[in-house]
Computed example of a mutant assay.
Amino acid sequence: MPKTLSLRSGIGSVLFWSVISAAFIGPGTVTTCAMAGSTFDLQLLWALTFSTFGTILLQEAAARLTLASGLSLGEVIARSYGEKARWISGLLFGAVALGCAAYQAGNILGAVSGLTLLTGAPGSILTVAVGAVCILLLWQGSTRLIANFLGLVVFVMGVAFAYVALNSGQSAGAFGAALITPSLPPNSMVLVIGLIGTTIVPYNLFLGSGIGRDQSLGEMRWGIGLAVLIGGLISMTILVAGTLITGDFSFQTVAQTLSARLGTWAGALFAFGLFAAGFTSALTAPLAAAVTAQSLLGWSPTSTPYRLVWLVVMGLGLTFGLLGVRPVPVIIAAQAANGLLLPIVTVFLFQAVNNKQLLDERYRNSRWQNVAMLLVVGVTAFLGLRNVWLALSA
């Protein structure tokens, strides 16, 4: 008999799956969404609608695969290609780990930027403090503890940005129309790609399929659907808040503009949101790299290699954070790697959730799920090639 979904288990599932929202709402998301609002008002809001539902679709498929087969996405890939599995797994892990390490510096710097705006304390001290708290939480080894903690932080961050957005003066009618009306104003393509690419993140598919083994199908669908939807709404409120910003874009300018337009509380709430976005992503990037290693390479969460993975990712982020250096060459390489990785992982996932030998009919994709996933595969393939082109051009 199917397990009944109670209110308590439903809320717990939403908190647990908020780890996915925490992973894609980082300083990059705050920057991209705020710049989109500042430059194009509400015209690019539709891109967040598409990417939010695309993320729900792909994350649900990855988690459903694990619930049905007992195998994570990485384990399915590793077992499906015989002699080729070892180098395929190694390449996928290398690409994911490179991306996580490259963006970890930005996560920590974003968190420190928010704290600096709030407190005025020296950046080096704040960097060490953020890193120490992240290491302490990750060392506990419990993904459920981390996920629930991140869920609470994401919720508070959402309230902060929503409060700013509600005071931006945008009408509900204009907001609703922009949600569903595709628009490509001149010179907007890069930001559209950024809005979609910052939400549909390839390593989140490994992270989601690697941590969600102990839930019912109903709990998983409810948790992922609502958690990602909340994350998408937070991104949308950041874009709406960005419509208040004029002039050159920087975190300090954003805080000053919001304070001047709405009061000092708005600047402080933005600073807290920036800190929360950076801090939650600074936790999830190392965790995603380690879970991907567990999934693709079979390393246990209590093993030394597993902990070394997240320690190296965290250490690289802290090093660049303390030096105040932007690791541009590494980030460009990571963009190219993730640009190729996203459509490839999506194709692997599409094949797995249609595998009759692996899944019974209840867990395989329906016709509409296949159509929707093929649409996302097409868009992500375009994004991947576009990201590679941008990275090579840079």
Score class of each variant (00 low, 15 high):
Thr264Met: 12
Thr302Met: 07
Ile88Arg: 13
Phe40Trp: 09
Ser168Gln: 03
Ala268Cys: 09
Gly37Gln: 02
Phe53Cys: 08
Gln357His: 14
Thr52Val: 07
Ser69Met: 10
Ile211Ala: 09
Leu44Asn: 02
Leu308Ser: 12
Glu83Ser: 13
Phe50His: 05
Ser366Glu: 11
Ala266Gln: 02
Ala241Phe: 03
Asp248Glu: 15
Ile88Thr: 08
Gly273Pro: 08
Trp17Tyr: 15
Leu283Asn: 15
Asn167Ala: 14
Gly141Ala: 04
Val14Tyr: 05
Ala293Gln: 14
Ala95His: 02
Asn167Thr: 09
Tyr81His: 15
Met35Ile: 15
Asp248His: 13
Phe348Asn: 00
Asn148Asp: 07
Val291Lys: 09
Arg64His: 08
Pro27Asn: 12
Leu205Glu: 00
Gly10Tyr: 04
Gly99Leu: 07
Gly151Leu: 01
Trp139Arg: 15
Tyr103Gly: 13
Thr66Arg: 15
Phe206Leu: 13
Met220Phe: 01
Leu239Glu: 12
Ser51Asn: 04
Val164Met: 00
Ala36Met: 04
Asn354Glu: 11
Asn365Val: 02
Gln294Thr: 12
Val228Cys: 07
Gly141Met: 04
Ser295Asp: 11
Ala277Leu: 05
Ala289Gln: 05
Leu184Trp: 13
Leu137Tyr: 13
Gly110Ala: 08
Gly242Lys: 01
Thr31Pro: 02
Met314Asp: 06
Trp299Val: 15
Met189Phe: 13
Gly169Trp: 09
Leu205Asn: 00
Gly218Ala: 14
Trp222Ser: 09
Ser209Gly: 13
Met157Gln: 12
Ala111Pro: 08
Leu118Val: 10
Leu184Pro: 02
Asn370Phe: 00
Val347Met: 11
Leu42Pro: 08
Leu117Phe: 10
Val156Arg: 00
Glu83Trp: 11
Ala337Asp: 09
Leu117Tyr: 08
Phe155Glu: 00
Gly151Cys: 01
Val159Ile: 15
Ala372Arg: 08
Arg8Val: 12
Ile331Asn: 03
Pro185Cys: 08
Gly176Gln: 09
Leu195Ala: 01
Ala288Pro: 06
Ala276Asp: 08
Leu205Trp: 03
Thr49Trp: 10
Asn370Gly: 13
Gly378His: 02
Tyr203Ile: 06
Leu137Ile: 15
Leu150Lys: 02
Thr280Ser: 15
Gly74Thr: 03
Ile245Tyr: 05
Ser295Leu: 10
Ile245Gly: 03
Val19Gly: 13
Phe40Arg: 03
Ile196Ser: 03
Met236Phe: 06
Gly298Ser: 10
Gly110Arg: 07
Gly120Leu: 11
Leu73Ala: 05
Ser300Arg: 14
Gly324Arg: 05
Leu375Ile: 15
